[in-house]
Design a protein around this nucleic acid. Structure first.
Length: 968
RNA sequence: GGGCGAGUGGCGAAAUGGCAGACGCAAAGGACUUAAAAUCCUUCGGUAGCAAUACCAUGAGGGUUCGACUCCCUCCUCGCCCACCA
C-alpha cells in the first residue's frame, strides 16, 4: 500500500470546495426537526482582519453546530457584519478612504479567513448591517419604538468625545474616557434621541432568571441596572418650596442633619439666599466644568457650598441646612438627598469636612453585646481608639483619622448601656498570644502598639490580635447595615428593628402624606444619537407644525446619502446637516416645509435585532418572518467575549421585549444560552516606564518588534497581552493554517485550556496539536487498505479471543461517551485528552498488528474515530472518509453512539486504605459487592500485616473505588 | 472602596468529598538513519534509598470528615468588572 502523506494544504482546500459545491451548510427551514440556533457575536469587520483570538470564538461554536447537526438537529449557523458605526468610520478616515469602499474589502477578508479555518456558516443568509436592505428594517424598528413612546428627543448634557466628535452612550464611557480612543469625555448640551430602556428595567432584571447565562454576566447586568428600593420624602423649605428627596434608608430619617442638592438641581436658584448667591453660582459653574472623571472619583475630597437656606423637618420642625455638592447627582433619584452622617459614610465625610453638627445614631445595633464587648471607649493623650472583645478574641482599634472623636461618639451611640456593662473604668490593654495585657502606662501602650504595627497581618491573626487605623471595622455596624433597633426616633416607630423598620417608616410617611415608597434604577435611558456620517439616518422629519414625524413606512429606508467628505465637523451636528437638498423635505402629515433629522444611530441599534433577521434574510416586506423567528429563536447558543456584558446584551434583550410587546414574536429573551470564550494572549515585548526624573516605575508598556530590535535585550521584559494591530503582535489564522493546517489550529485552540480561560499562545503547543492530528492521520491512513466495512458481524468472535481487542473496544466506547458529554459541556480540552488516550491505545494495538494484520475491532475504532472527530477536524475527517470508500460527508452521518455494554469495565482497581492512607491496591471484578471488597481487602498480605494487633472500628466501602479501615 | 473569579510539577492543565498531577508541552535516554529532521519505544513533582518502599507536597494557617485540591473560617497574592447611585 502506498502511504498518502498528510498534505493539509491540499486536503483543506479540496474539502472546502466540496462543501461549497454541495451547499453543505445551507440551512433549510424544516420545522419538523428539532432546531439548533448557534450564533457568534456580530463582528465589526476591521482592516486588521481576523486573529487567532477571534477563532477562539468561532471554532467552538462551529464544533457544537457540526456536532448538533450529526445528532439530528436542524442547525442554523449564520454570520453577518456589524459594518455601521464609529469604528468603521474612524478606520476609513485614517486610511483616507470611504467606509463604502473599505467595508466590503474587509468583509471579503473576514469571509476568506473564516472559510480557511473551516467554519461552516450558511453564507446564503449573510447580513451586512450597512446595506439598505438591512437598515430599512432597523429604521422600521426605530419607528416602532417611536410609535410606542419608547423613542424621544431631549436636550441633555451628553457625553461628548472631542476626538470622535460625537456623543456617546453611558456604556461607552469607560473611566471617564471614550471607550474607543481614550479621550476624556466632556459634557455638552445637545438635542439627543433616547430609547426608554428604563421603562423595561424591572423586566430586564427579572427575566435574567429565565436564561442560562454565566452568573457573572447576569450579575453585571443586575448591577448595571442597579435596582434599589427606598422612599421619596417631601421636605418644605423655609420659603415654602417642596423639596423631594430620595433615600434607601427611610429608617434613618430622624437622623437628618443636613440636606444636599445636586449643583444643577432646579430649586437651587430659588432657594439660595442673596448673600450666598455668588458663592453658589461659582460652585455650580465649577461643577459643570468638571469632566466625568473628576466627578466619579471617590478619592477626591468632598466639595460643596451651603446655600444659606433651610428646610423644615416634617417630623419635628427642626431647621435643616441645605447644601449643594457634586457627590449628589441630578440623574439619579430626585437629585436631592437627606444627609444622615450617623448612617452614611459619604454624609459623614461631608459633615466632618464642613463641621456640620451630626445628630446621634438613630438605629442601635441589636445584640451587639453578644458579639462585641467594649472594654474601653475613650480618648487618652492623643491616642484615640476602642478596645473590645469579639468572639472571645480581643481587639484594639485605633483611629488615626482626624475625625476620630466623632466616630467614637457615633459608636458610643450605637451601643446600649448593657454593652458597657463589663467595662471597668478606662482600662487600656493589648492582646498578645490571646492574653489581655493591661496597659500600665501610655508609654507602655505605645510601645506595644509599635510592635503590633510591625507584624505581618497573618501573624496578627494568629496572635488573636488585630490592629486597625481606619474606621473600616465599624462601617458594617454604622453605615452598611439596616440591622438594629430604632432609637432617637418617633415613638410610633421606635418599637421596630431591622428591615421591618424601613417598611414601618414608609407606612408612617404615607399615612401622614409626607412621602411614599419607591424604586430607583441606576440605568439611564439609552442615548442613540450620533453626530456622525457612517450610520443609518434616524427616520424622523421635523415639521414646525406637526413636530417630530416618523417617515412613512413606504418611504423607508431613508437612504444614507452619498457624500465625498464625511469627516465630522465638530460643531455638534452630523455631516448630513451640510446637505441642504437632503435635509429639506416636506412634512408627511401637512405637506409643509420640513427638515430631516440629521443624526444617525449608534452601531448598537444594528446589533440589537440582527439575530432575528438571519431567520428570514430574504424577506423585503417585513423585518423578519414571524413564524420562522418563533421556530428558530431564542438562540440556543450565543458565543462571544465578556466585554459586551452590559452594552450589546442589554440592548438586544430590550429590543426583544419591545418586539414581544408589539406582538411580533412569542419569546421574551433573545439568547437562551450564553458562553464567553477566554481571550488569546500573546507574549509581547515590554519596556519599563521611566518617569521624567529618570526613576523607574513599576509599570510596563508594550513595544513593537521594531522598537524591541533597537533596545538593549536586557531592558526588554516579556509579558502576555491581548493582540492588537498597534503592538504588531497579531497572529492570524491564515498563517497558522498555512504552517500547520486549519484542523491543527482548531485542535490547539480547543485543547490548550478550558473554554472560558485565557490562553497564552504558544507555538510549541501548536506543534503538539499538529502532532496529534498528524498521528491520527498516519494511523487511519496506514490502516486504509485493511479497513473492512463489514466489521460488525466479526466483532464478537474477535473480542472473545483477543483480550487486547476487547480492551481497545472498551476504550473506544468510553471515549465516545466522554467526548459526547464533554462537547455538550463545553469541556473540549478534556474530551480531546480522552481521544488522545484512545489514540495511544490504538497506536499500541496497531504496532502489534504489524504491516498486514487485520482486526474487525480496529476497523470499528477507525470508523468511529473519524466520525467523532469530524466536528473538530472536519477537513481531515472528510478526506479520510472518502479514502475509506464512503460516500458523501461525515457531517451527514449520525454521531457515534456509545455501546454501554462494550464500555463497561470487567475489572476495576480498588484502593485499600487504613485511616485514609493508601496501603494497597487490588484488582477486582467490576461487579464485586462492597462486602466482597472488604473480604478481599482483608485477605491482602500487606493489609494483613498492617492490621496486626489493631482493632477495626469501621470499614468504609465505596463500590468500584475503595475500602477504608478505621482502626484503633 | 464594593462585587466576582482564580492560586496544583519547569510550563498549559486534570481530578468538585475517595489513588493528586489524566492529556499535552518542554527535558532526558533508546530504536531507526551515513547524518539530521520526522517517527516509534521508555523515563519524568520533591526528599531518602540499589530497590521494594517510606515520608513530604495542591498560596499560608486553622476547622469539619474515616478520608479534603474539592466543604467551612481567617489571612496573603493575582486577575477581571463596577465604583460618590443616597
Amino acid at each position: 500500500m502506498k502511504e498518502k502523506p498528510y498534505d493539509f494544504r491540499e486536503i483543506e482546500k479540496k474539502q472546502q470546495k466540496r462543501w461549497k459545491d454541495a451547499e453543505l451548510f445551507k440551512t433549510t427551514d424544516d420545522k419538523d426537526k428539532p432546531k439548533f440556533y448557534g450564533l457568534d457575536f456580530f463582528p465589526y469587520p476591521s482592516g486588521a482582519g481576523l486573529s487567532v483570538g477571534h477563532c477562539r470564538n468561532y471554532i467552538p461554536t462551529d464544533v457544537i453546530c457540526r456536532y448538533k447537526r450529526m445528532k439530528g438537529f436542524n442547525v442554523l449557523h449564520p454570520m453577518g457584519w456589524d459594518a455601521f458605526g464609529l469604528p468603521a468610520e474612524n478606520e476609513a478616515i485614517n486610511k483616507k478612504s470611504h467606509p463604502k469602499k473599505t467595508v466590503p474589502t474587509y468583509i471579503n477578508t473576514y469571509k476568506r479567513q473564516m472559510d480557511t479555518i473551516g467554519i461552516g456558516y450558511d453564507w446564503s443568509r449573510e447580513i451586512n448591517s450597512s446595506s439598505p436592505e438591512y437598515y430599512k428594517w432597523t429604521q422600521w424598528i426605530f419607528e416602532l419604538l417611536f410609535k410606542r413612546g419608547l423613542a424621544y428627543q431631549d436636550f441633555s448634557p451628553a457625553n461628548w468625545c472631542p476626538k470622535c466628535k460625537t456623543v456617546l452612550a453611558n456604556e461607552e464611557v469607560v473611566d471617564g474616557l471614550c471607550w474607543r480612543c481614550d479621550t476624556p469625555i466632556e459634557k455638552k448640551q445637545l438635542p439627543q434621541w433616547f430609547f426608554k430602556i428604563t421603562e423595561y428595567a424591572e423586566r430586564l432584571i427579572d427575566d435574567l432568571d429565565t436564561i442560562n447565562w454565566p452568573d457573572s454576566i447576569k450579575l453585571m447586568q443586575k448591577n448595571w441596572i442597579g435596582k434599589s428600593e427606598g422612599a421619596e420624602v417631601t421636605f418644605k423649605s423655609e420659603s415654602g418650596e417642596d423639596i423631594v428627596i430620595y433615600t434607601t434608608r427611610p429608617d434613618t430619617l430622624w437622623g437628618v442633619s443636613f440636606m444636599v442638592l445636586a449643583p444643577e438641581h432646579p430649586l437651587v436658584e430659588k432657594l439660595c439666599s442673596p448673600e450666598k448667591r455668588e458663592e453658589v453660582a461659582e460652585y455650580r459653574k465649577l461643577a459643570e466644568r468638571q469632566s466625568a472623571i473628576d466627578r466619579q472619583s471617590t478619592d477626591e475630597e468632598k466639595t460643596g457650598v451651603f446655600i444659606g437656606a433651610y428646610a423644615i423637618s416634617p417630623l419635628d420642625g427642626r431647621k435643616i441646612p441645605i447644601w449643594i455638592s457634586d457627590y449628589v447627582m441630578m440623574g439619579y433619584g430626585t437629585g436631592a438627598i437627606m444627609a444622615v452622617p450617623a448612617h452614611d459614610e459619604r454624609d459623614f465625610a461631608f459633615a466632618c469636612k464642613f463641621g456640620i453638627d451630626i445628630l446621634p445614631v438613630i438605629k442601635r445595633v441589636d445584640g451587639m453585646s453578644k458579639t462585641i464587648v467594649p472594654i474601653s471607649c475613650d480618648i487618652e493623650d492623643g491616642l484615640k481608639g476602642i478596645s473590645f472583645k469579639k468572639d472571645e478574641k480581643y481587639y484594639y482599634i485605633h483611629f488615626a483619622e482626624k475625625d476620630a472623636e466623632r466616630v467614637i461618639d457615633l459608636i458610643k451611640g450605637a451601643l446600649s448601656e448593657k454593652d458597657f456593662a463589663p467595662v471597668v473604668g478606662t482600662k487600656w490593654g493589648i492582646i498578645t498570644k490571646g492574653e489581655f495585657n493591661e496597659w500600665t502606662s501610655f508609654e507602655k501602650g505605645r510601645e506595644l502598639l509599635e510592635i503590633v504595627k510591625s507584624f505581618d497581618s497573618s501573624i496578627k491573626a494568629g496572635l488573636l490580635m488585630e490592629y486597625y487605623n481606619t474606621i473600616d471595622f465599624f462601617k458594617d455596624i454604622l453605615f452598611h447595615t439596616d440591622k438594629g433597633q430604632l432609637i432617637n426616633s418617633d415613638p410610633m416607630v421606635m418599637a421596630f428593628s431591622g428591615s421591618e423598620a424601613k417598611t414601618k417608616v414608609i407606612e408612617y410617611l404615607e399615612e401622614r402624606g409626607l412621602g411614599h415608597g419607591t424604586v430607583n434604577f441606576k440605568l439611564r435611558d439609552w442615548l442613540i444619537s450620533r453626530q456622525r456620517y457612517w450610520g443609518y439616518p434616524i427616520p424622523i422629519i421635523h415639521c414646525e407644525k406637526c413636530g417630530a414625524v416618523p417617515v412613512p413606512e413606504d418611504q423607508l429606508p431613508v437612504m444614507l446619502p452619498d457624500v465625498e467628505n464625511y469627516v465630522p465637523t465638530g460643531d455638534g451636528r452630523s455631516p448630513l446637516a451640510n446637505i441642504p437638498e437632503w435635509v429639506n423635505t416636506k412634512c408627511p402629515i401637512c405637506g409643509g416645509d420640513a427638515k430631516r433629522e440629521t443624526d444617525t444611530m449608534g452601531g448598537f441599534a444594528c446589533s440589537s435585532w440582527y439575530f432575528l433577521r438571519f431567520t428570514s434574510q430574504h424577506r423585503d416586506d417585513v423585518p423578519f418572518d414571524k413564524e420562522l423567528a418563533n421556530y428558530w429563536l431564542p438562540v440556543d447558543l450565543y458565543v462571544g467575549g465578556a466585554e459586551h456584558a452590559v452594552m450589546h446584551l442589554l440592548y438586544a434583550r430590550f429590543w426583544t421585549k419591545v418586539l414581544y410587546d408589539a406582538g411580533l414574536i412569542d419569546f421574551i429573551e433573545p439568547f437562551y444560552c450564553l458562553k464567553n470564550q477566554g481571550m488569546v494572549l500573546v507574549e509581547t515585548p515590554h519596556k519599563q516606564l521611566i518617569k521624567e526624573d529618570g526613576t523607574k516605575t513599576k509599570d510596563y508598556v508594550p513595544i513593537t518588534p521594531e522598537e524591541e530590535a533597537q533596545m538593549d535585550p536586557g531592558d526588554v521584559t516579556y509579558k502576555f497581552t491581548k493582540m492588537s494591530k498597534s503592538k504588531k503582535n497579531v497572529i492570524t489564522p491564515d498563517a497558522m493554517a498555512e504552517q500547520f493546517g486549519a484542523d491543527s489550529l482548531r485542535v490547539y485552540e480547543l485543547f490548550v485550556s478550558p473554554f472560558e480561560e485565557a490562553i497564552m499562545w504558544s507555538n510549541d503547543g501548536m506543534i503538539g496539536a499538529s502532532r496529534f492530528v498528524n498521528r491520527v492521520w498516519r494511523i487511519l491512513d496506514g490502516y486504509r487498505d485493511r479497513f473492512d466495512k463489514d466489521y460488525a458481524g466479526k466483532i464478537d468472535e474477535e473480542i472473545a479471543q483477543n483480550k487486547e481487542a476487547k480492551s481497545l473496544r472498551r476504550k473506544l466506547h468510553q471515549t465516545i461517551k466522554k467526548l459526547d458529554s464533554d462537547i455538550n459541556d463545553f469541556k473540549f480540552n478534556t474530551g480531546i485528552a480522552m481521544v488522545m488516550e484512545l489514540l495511544n491505545e490504538m497506536q499500541a494495538f496497531y504496532n502489534k498488528l504489524g504491516e498486514t494484520g487485520k482486526s474487525a475491532v480496529f476497523s470499528e475504532v477507525c470508523e468511529n474515530l473519524i466520525l467523532m472527530l469530524s466536528p473538530i477536524v472536519p477537513h481531515m475527517a472528510d478526506e479520510i472518509w472518502e479514502d475509506y470508500g464512503f460516500e458523501g460527508f461525515t457531517l451527514d452521518m449520525p454521531y457515534p453512539v456509545c455501546d454501554e455494554e462494550a464500555a463497561k469495565d470487567d475489572e476495576v482497581e480498588i484502593v485499600i486504605q487504613i485511616l485514609g492512607k493508601v496501603r494497597a491496591k487490588i484488582s477486582v471484578p467490576a461487579d464485586t459487592t462492597p462486602d466482597e471488597m472488604e473480604k478481599l481487602a482483608l485477605e491482602n498480605e500487606t493489609i494483613k500485616g498492617l492490621l496486626e494487633g489493631k482493632t477495626i472500628v469501621k470499614a468504609i466501602k465505596v463500590p468500584k473505588k475503595l475500602v477504608n479501615f478505621v482502626v484503633k
